[in-house]
Design a protein around this nucleic acid. Structure first.
Length: 375
RNA sequence: GGAUGGGUGGCCCAGCGGCGACGGCACCUGACUGUAAAUCAGGGACAUAGAAACACCGUAGGUUCGAGUCCUACCCCAUCCA
């Protein structure tokens, strides 16, 4: 259940109530695809860096260790010892990212496993069954995420099929939630809007799926190669056609600047691999922009990544030390960078929530963007 | 003193007459958006921010249209013998 606390322009400050607790929005979900945030980040760490929601992936957990195993181990929450909300992505993104290893049909998608090449079939029903076994808080509908380069005549039939798949997802989810041995009988389902960079297709699709009374709605298929201008234009055009009494989730986005722009356009949920992947690659976020700690100029830099930052890395360690760890390929270096970046994102969302509550989001956003220096 | 093997970017090394010199590591730089990513790409042998020109394989000669590659001498390193 989504409760709107206040608005500031089109920016929304809300609370999303789930069986695993309340999610304060806008929120950034921390991505742990295979039930682990890459970079040796533990569940205790997540508690320290202010993580509100963890995100995992249907396709990846189905391939390894297997959703049935996770069900046998009591579900994803128990398996990874995390009792706050978990959102599972449906495998729809893998239709995009593993494009070379799959075939799309009306019934679903045939993948060749990226691990051992074996055939895996995933359609809407399979995705829901897997997510039900994982027992995540929120399940995502199984969609096709087409690339930004896709033309109208590819996008339209793809979106139509995604709509048909969504109906099948909804029916299957209802069936699974009513079964005796389902772990999370209150599993929620978010639908996904598609339509590439074509506003009319996006809007039409938003209208159709809005009538399906789902728990939340996502905008998918962005940040897949289109320009920022196109991305912001599509968000701005689409959000008003999604239910305002439900959360809106912009999938896979993005940079701190992307998030600020999208919050301003009414988005509540975000996720992105940037903070963790960039962290592993030694790129760290600060309010003055992004630093590449591999750069020689940090060799003897005794300052923390960011002065005044409350993350476990900044409270104690210098840029020079972390650079050394990274250069020496010590996992600790990556770990510090990932912890810092996730803290930075989680903390920025907290600041965003406060700014909206105090109706000074526009000013907050402007100052933040000025500081980022094009981040 | 003798024998043998060897000296090629910061390091390890390929090369066996067409090389303006392969590869790895290290170094420098960049990319990464619902994670096939602790990954990927680019750079540099002298010089340069980069490009062009000039230059390059221990040193000095020689043979050859052409030499890192063949020959001679010398210097250095390693191992063995005295």
């Amino acid at each position: 259940m989504y409760k709107l606390i206040t608005t500031d322009g089109r920016a929304k400050r809300g609370e999303f109530h789930t069986p695993h607790g309340v999610i304060q929005t806008p929120v950034f979900m921390n991505v742990g695809t295979v039930a682990a945030i890459k970079g040796a980040v533990s569940t205790e760490d997540l508690e320290q860096i202010g993580t509100l929601v963890e995100l995992s992936n249907t396709y990846h957990l189905h391939v390894r260790p297997g959703d049935k195993l996770i069900k046998q181990m009591g579900g994803l929450h128990r398996f990874m010892s995390w009792d706050k909300p978990i959102l599972t992505d449906s495998g729809g993104f893998q239709v995009f990212s593993l494009a070379g290893l799959r075939k799309i049909k009306e019934e679903g998608v045939y993948f060749n496993s990226h691990i051992d090449g074996r055939k895996i079939f995933m359609g809407p029903e399979e995705s829901m069954q897997i997510q039900s076994n994982l027992a995540s808080t929120i399940a995502m509908a199984f969609d096709e995420c087409p690339p930004a380069t896709a033309e109208r005549n590819y996008i339209q039939p793809s979106v139509d099929r995604t709509t048909r798949w969504l109906k099948r997802c909804k029916d299957e989810m209802a069936r699974l939630n009513s079964l005796e041995d389902t772990i999370n009988k209150q599993q929620m389902l978010f639908g996904i809007n598609q339509g590439g960079i074509f506003e009319d297709i996006r809007i039409e699709h938003a209208k159709v799926i809005s009538e399906m009374d789902l728990d939340g709605y996502a905008i998918g298929g962005l940040a897949v190669g289109e320009s920022h201008e196109d991305m912001y234009r599509i968000i701005e055009a689409t959000v008003p056609y999604l239910p305002q009494n439900k959360p809106t989730y912009l999938m896979g986005v993005g940079t701190p600047a992307n998030i600020l722009e999208a919050v301003e356009r009414g988005v509540d949920f975000f996720d992105c691999v940037y903070p963790s992947r960039n962290g592993r690659h030694g790129h760290v976020y600060t309010n003055q922009g992004k630093l590449n700690l591999f750069n020689q100029k940090y060799e003897t830099d005794d300052r923390p990544i960011e002065e005044g930052c409350g993350c476990p890395a900044c409270k104690r360690y210098s840029r020079a030390y972390i650079r050394h760890l990274l250069k020496a390929k010590e996992m600790l270096g990556m770990r510090f960078c990932v912890l810092h970046n996730l803290y930075f994102y989680n903390n920025m969302m907290k600041e965003i929530r406060e700014a909206i509550e105090e109706h000074r989001f526009a000013e907050y956003k402007r100052k933040k963007l000025d500081g980022f220096n094009g981040l």
